[in-house]
């Protein structure tokens, strides 16, 4: 065979001299953008730090075991957050199973069973839209539907249902994403062994997507726990001396208690509010750390 013919020298489109010249300029832009992003990050962190510092400075002195165990009182030195704390915990315990069953169920249906089509994508778009609806609107819905129409009154269950409804869109969307992330090959492996669709979903898809699903649920619940507006709409009690005794009890929740204290003129109550915020924040940070831990610990690598 003849040697390959020498190729005519091709014109080069990338000119090394021009590259050299532009490099220093590009690096300057690089550094400037880096500084801008750093400022962005610092701004957020500093503001957050100042807020935290303020809250801890005002509230730390009021934190005590008594504060956690007492009912609110007109006398600041005797006031506590026990009913509100228990109200929030009960709300959480009620919301989690509701959004787990409804949210994951809806996500499984949409991802695994529903025929992909215009109807399904219409529903999906609207679920995403619902995630952006202001929480007070869900409060209004809860007031008309659960409190009035269903006749629950301003009870724990009405509040829990309202918050669950509010969290559902976020849970559905995040569960859908977790389910979608399970490789198709897993489903095929299971189906090819003669497993039914439900067995495949329950034994393969769901376990594989569970870390993502649980993370989504925890984040949604921690958001719900910090909500005030919908609970005020459904008529959570502003002043209540006892923890709820059942799902049809009157109730209050931490954010409402905090809101209540901040609206008082006396400085002592401001301190109590700050202490309440610390308690709420500890709960939220714990939940979020739990979510991160679950994600890191159980996330599957395919």
């Amino acid at each position: 065979m003849a040697l390959p013919e020498k190729q005519p020298v091709q014109k080069k489109f990338i000119d090394p001299v021009a590259v050299k010249k532009s490099i220093s300029q590009r690096l300057v832009v690089n550094n400037i953008t880096k500084i801008i992003f750093l400022i962005g990050l610092l701004f957020g962190l500093v503001v957050l730090g100042i807020l935290l510092f303020g809250v801890v400075r005002d509230g730390a002195a009021w934190l005590s075991l008594d504060f956690l165990q007492n009912a609110p009182s007109r006398r600041p030195d005797r006031a506590g957050i026990y009913p509100a704390l228990m109200g929030s915990i009960f709300l959480m315990l009620l919301i989690i199973p509701m959004i787990f069953i409804l949210g994951v169920g809806a996500a499984i249906y949409l991802e695994e069973y529903a025929k992909k089509g215009r109807m399904t994508s219409f529903i999906e778009v609207n679920i995403s839209n619902l995630a952006g609806v202001p929480s007070i609107v869900f409060g209004l819905l809860g007031l008309t539907f659960f409190v009035r129409n269903m006749g629950f009154g301003s009870t724990l269950i009405a509040g829990a249902l309202t918050l669950a409804l509010m969290s559902l869109p976020v849970v559905i969307v995040s569960s859908q994403e977790a389910i979608r992330a399970v490789p198709q090959a897993m489903r095929h492996a299971s189906l090819a062994l003669g497993a039914s669709k439900w067995q495949t979903t329950f034994k393969v898809v769901l376990p594989a997507s569970l870390p993502g699903v649980i993370t989504g649920i925890i984040l949604a619940v921690s958001r719900a726990i910090g909500e005030t507006a919908p609970l005020i709409m459904v008529g959570a009690a502003i002043f209540i001396a006892r923890a709820p005794e059942g799902i049809f009890s009157e109730f209050t929740a931490l954010p409402i208690q905090i809101y209540n204290w901040t609206s008082r003129p006396q400085a002592d109550f401001q301190g109590l509010a700050a202490a309440g915020i610390i308690v709420l924040m500890v709960i939220l940070l714990t939940m979020n750390s739990l979510a991160i831990w679950i994600r890191n610990r159980f996330s599957k690598r395919y």
Binding site: A185, M186, A189, S190, A208, Y302
Partner: peptide, 10 residues
């Protein structure tokens, strides 16, 4: 059935 890519369950 055995697939082209090994696809064990996690």
């Amino acid at each position: 059935m055995v697939f082209q890519q090994p696809n064990p369950f996690p």
